Simulated assay, not measured.
Amino acid sequence: MIDILKEWIINIASLILFITAVEMLLPDNSLKKYSKFVLGLILMTVLINPIIKIFNKNFNISVYSQNISRVIYDEEKVDSIEKYKEESLKNTIKNFETNLEQIIGDKLKDEFKVLNTKIEIQAEYSDEDNNFNIKDIKIGIKDGKVEKVKKVKVSVGEKTLEEKEKDKLHDDIKSYLSKELRVEESIITVYKL
């Protein structure tokens, strides 16, 4: 009887140490509350197991509790992990886009002295390449000067010198970013704000 009591106390103490270690290692998210629930069930079975053994010699509650906790834990774990993975991927893509927008803005300021830009990036994560792919880059450029009212010229099929210069600037920006970012020019759109 003393050996049984000694074994029971050792099981309780070691389980409490294990539960404490697991709780300290788990991150603070929805998975932690489910883990605490399962660990609490296991602790209850360890506490109750000797009492049930007294009444029924063939009954082993730890086997039943382990099976139940494994089923509950696996189902909740899969759902939580998938949700966490999706949210994490969305946040990572958003951070990637924001950082790339900042980098492009800085490069345009340095290379072309363009001060006012509006940059929009669309990116996606590819599981096959395990890499981020840029789907679309839109760059709005404003020269920052107050424009004078110009004479209205109606011409058919011929661009003015100013329009040709703007088109050249847009083409130069597309070519420059294509080389710097190693992407195709077709995904880069440059427009006037």
Rank of each mutant, 00 (worst) to 15 (best):
E162Q: 13
N29P: 08
E165Y: 09
F59T: 07
N67Q: 08
L25W: 05
F59H: 03
S126Y: 10
S88E: 08
E7L: 11
K107H: 10
L43R: 01
I19A: 14
K113V: 02
I139F: 04
L181N: 15
H170Q: 07
L5P: 00
K168D: 09
K83C: 00
D28A: 11
K153D: 12
M44A: 15
I12H: 05
L115Y: 06
L31K: 02
K138H: 12
E184N: 14
D171G: 06
N133F: 06
I16L: 14
V46G: 00
K148F: 05
T189V: 04
S126T: 14
K179F: 07
S35Y: 09
K6S: 03
K90W: 05
I72R: 07
I48Y: 03
D127I: 02
L26Y: 05
V63Q: 12
L17F: 12
M44L: 15
K159S: 11
T160P: 10
S35C: 15
Y34E: 13
S88Y: 10
L115Q: 14
E101R: 03
M1C: 04
D143Y: 13
N95T: 15
T45Y: 02
K6H: 08
F132S: 04
T98N: 14
D28G: 00
I187S: 14
L17D: 02
E23Q: 05
N11H: 06
G144A: 11
E111Y: 00
F96A: 08
S62F: 06
S80Y: 08
I188C: 08
I42W: 01
L26R: 03
Y64F: 14
K94Q: 10
P50M: 04
E87A: 15
I68C: 14
I10E: 03
M1N: 12
V22C: 09
D3W: 01
K148L: 10
L100F: 07
D129I: 05
D171T: 08
F132N: 04
K135F: 00
F96Y: 15
E101T: 12
D74V: 06
I48H: 01
P50F: 01
L41E: 04
T45L: 01
K118M: 02
K148Q: 09
K94R: 11
E180Q: 13
V154S: 11
E82N: 08
K135R: 13
V71P: 00
G140E: 02
I134W: 06
V183R: 08
I42M: 06
I61R: 02
S80A: 15
E163C: 07
Y73D: 06
L115T: 09
L26T: 11
V78W: 08
K148A: 06
S175E: 10
K174Q: 06
K53I: 05
Y176R: 03
I68V: 15
K150R: 10
M1L: 03
Y125S: 02
N99C: 15
S30M: 05
K135P: 03
N130K: 14
N29G: 14
E97H: 05
A13T: 02
S155A: 09
R182V: 10
S88K: 09
K168W: 00
K77G: 02
K135M: 10
L108A: 09
K94Y: 09
D129F: 09
